[in-house]
């Protein structure tokens, strides 16, 4: 069992961070408000989890301007995509490995 848990990524062991990554797996980019609506979380909560993922370099933040308003978009990095796939595979192995 220990061997099975080895590939579980601690960073993805949280509903919101898992949600952010899942959404960014199937969308090229998403903006803050879309993520907020999708995951049904508060601004501050989402921002802190985004920061955690960014620090690990799993996601990248891109800022652009629409007129005078800033538009912040996020996308998954190559590393993030790889780590997420590893995590998914680990989840599957645990579930398929019923005692």
């Amino acid at each position: 069992m220990k061997d099975l848990i080895k590939n579980i990524n601690k960073l993805f062991d949280h509903r919101i961070r898992l949600g952010i990554m899942s959404a960014l797996m199937v969308n090229d980019t998403l903006d803050f408000n879309t993520l907020k609506d999708l995951l049904d979380v508060t601004d501050g909560n989402l921002a802190s989890h985004i920061k955690a993922l960014e620090r690990a370099e799993y996601i990248k933040i891109r800022k652009s301007f629409i007129g005078k308003k800033t538009n912040t978009k996020y996308n998954a990095t190559h590393l993030g995509t790889l780590e997420f796939k590893k995590h998914l595979a680990a989840l599957e192995r645990i579930i398929n490995n019923k005692p």
Binding site: L18, S22, V26, L88, L91
Partner: peptide, 8 residues
């Protein structure tokens, strides 16, 4: 896993 699917 079901949450991942749902969000995707």
């Amino acid at each position: 896993i079901s949450e991942i699917k749902d969000i995707m």
